[in-house]
């Protein structure tokens, strides 16, 4: 079987690439630049691409390109939010399961929910975007973010908890 072309592997995932970059960088122009950077890098790495689904492969490169941009422009944000590690037990103790207000999330105006997700620390934001918008598996998210699966799970937990808290606090 002939080797697929770079364009046929990478370009079908252009929307996914742009969506991720846009959520990480929160800016349309920056997102375009990051995706273009990523495609150029991907082209360079393409000889070592081992086939299969190109989406996780490309998103990993997009994520790195976006983080490089964040590090250049917002060094402080990255430095703070990378202090992450595993979830601490304290993340979970004040978390009464019964929380009918979460139902509010259903009715929220798109712009408000967007703003809330955009306000999360970047590594929580990316976990939620990759899981709930891209519908990727934990394993793929771990690959893309270069983190253990346990860290992915704890970031998802914390990201969702922050969304729920905001809903409860009436920020939505």
């Amino acid at each position: 079987m002939p080797r697929p072309s770079f364009a046929s592997v990478a370009l079908p995932h252009l929307d996914a690439a742009y969506n991720l970059a846009r959520w990480l960088l929160r800016d349309a122009t920056e997102a375009e630049d990051a995706v273009q950077d990523a495609l150029l890098r991907a082209l360079k790495y393409f000889p070592s691409f081992r086939g299969g689904d190109g989406r996780a492969w490309l998103l990993q490169i997009v994520r790195n390109a976006a983080y490089d941009r964040l590090a250049t422009k917002h060094g402080k944000e990255i430095a703070l939010s990378l202090d992450d590690g595993e979830a601490s037990p304290a993340d979970f103790v004040h978390d009464p399961g019964d929380d009918p207000e979460t139902a509010l999330v259903r009715k929220q105006d798109r712009a408000q929910l967007d703003a809330l997700l955009a306000s999360l620390p970047v590594e929580l934001r990316e976990a939620v975007v990759l899981c709930d918008l891209e519908e990727l598996s934990y394993r793929d998210i771990a690959l893309i973010t270069g983190s253990p699966v346990g860290t992915v799970m704890s970031r998802l937990w914390r990201g969702r908890r922050a969304l729920r808290r905001a809903a409860r606090a009436g920020e939505l």
Partner: peptide, 10 residues
């Protein structure tokens, strides 16, 4: 509810 809300509304 949250997962569905994000998926449908973000």
């Amino acid at each position: 509810v949250i997962k569905e809300g994000v998926h449908a509304n973000v």
